[in-house]
Simulated scan of single mutants.
Amino acid sequence: MKTKDHMYRIEKYSNIHCLIVFLFIVFWSYAQESNENVSPKKYIAYFTDQSIDVNGNESEESWKKVKATEHFIDIEGVKTPKYKTSVKMLWNEEYVYFLAKMEEPHVWGNLKQRDTIIFYNNDFEIFIDPDNDTHNYYEFEINALNTLWDLFITKPYREGTPVLNDWDANGLKSAVQINGTLNDPTDIDKGWTLEVAIPFKVFRTSYYHKNVPRDTFWRVNFSRVNWDFQLEQNRYQRKKNQQGKFESEYNWVWSPMGVINMHRPEDWGYVYFSSKKTGEQDEFELPQDHRVKQYLYMLYRKQKEFYKKNNRWGTTFEEISSNHLEIEGNRLIRNLENHQTGFNITVVSPFTNRLFIIKEDGKIVEKED
């Protein structure tokens, strides 16, 4: 759960199990655009009818039949991490499964309480937005001790909304296998493997919601947090600089974000849940309207930047410095409308003729034109 300079932090009092959220709008995120050369990754999760024993091992034949993702890249999409990370996915009618493999010469962890700030240890993180609207999404963080932090996030942190830290992913199963020795600085480890099963019912929006994603996609990303360490009384600790402050962590991800901020669901990867079984082959291409939504988020960020400078919303596209009128050579029909509580920016897709509206809180509404 990373944003630049750790602007967003959540702490939980263990004695009263009470959430304290201190969230501020990250002004830099409005001005900083994503790297235009970064495009979302895609992955096909195949169906399995085999029983999966969540034990941290890749023992089932289904795991052996599916490919892993590409090795992770630095969050900005530029640097190659010093340790390799990859993920596999499967699904059946009840669960979505994840298997993450992480190279690590020193496997360590000291956080054992659920819902504490797990990324203060090296960890693995799963981000899921089932309906691709950037709101009401999920985050799961797990360290090498198999300690879980699960969160439900109503809106990205840029909107200053609270996080539901007391939300629980009931029925989630996870297991860790360590190729080496945990918390032993006297030897060199090879790494650790994390296996996770999350019930689809966790993502239901109502009791009768049929949400098993057969032959459709979710927006998903994975992040691995890795810290340089120091030893204190022969125990691993996050490394500090000469001023006594913790050095910055490394953020390694599957689908690069272009900026140091995981909480931009519009930039996550695409996972397609194929009804074909493991061992079979399927194909998936990014939806054409992905480009339309990315264009809308560009306008959204420019409006936010304009408001920061002028204390009002821009009323024309010329004011917010956006004269770009085409996507892949297709001319856009667009409209900017302000109202008492914000704005609506509307674009008609040149690919599907669907109407897309982005609101001041970043939520996209999709309609038939």
Rank of each mutant, 00 (worst) to 15 (best):
N136R: 13
G191H: 04
T116M: 10
T181V: 11
D184N: 13
P156M: 03
D150P: 03
K101H: 07
N143I: 05
E103Y: 06
T186I: 04
E103W: 06
V212M: 07
R158V: 12
P156C: 04
Y83G: 01
L151E: 15
K82P: 04
G77V: 09
I188K: 08
R214H: 13
W192Y: 14
R204H: 02
N170T: 08
F200Q: 05
Y95S: 01
I178A: 04
T116R: 07
Y138P: 05
Y207E: 15
V212G: 06
K88G: 06
E94V: 07
D187M: 09
F127G: 14
N136H: 15
D133L: 10
N165R: 10
F124V: 08
L182V: 07
V78F: 10
E103M: 06
Y207N: 14
M89H: 03
E159N: 12
T181W: 09
P213R: 10
F127D: 12
F152Q: 11
W108K: 00
T154P: 11
Y120Q: 10
W167S: 07
V107P: 06
L145V: 00
R158Y: 14
L111C: 01
F140L: 14
D150Y: 02
V107I: 11
K155E: 14
D187T: 09
G171N: 04
I118R: 03
A100I: 08
Y83Q: 09
G191V: 02
P81L: 09
N146H: 04
N136S: 15
A175G: 01
T181C: 07
P213T: 09
K79C: 10
K101G: 08
L151K: 15
L145K: 02
P185H: 10
D168W: 08
P105D: 15
D166I: 10
R214D: 10
E76Y: 08
A169P: 01
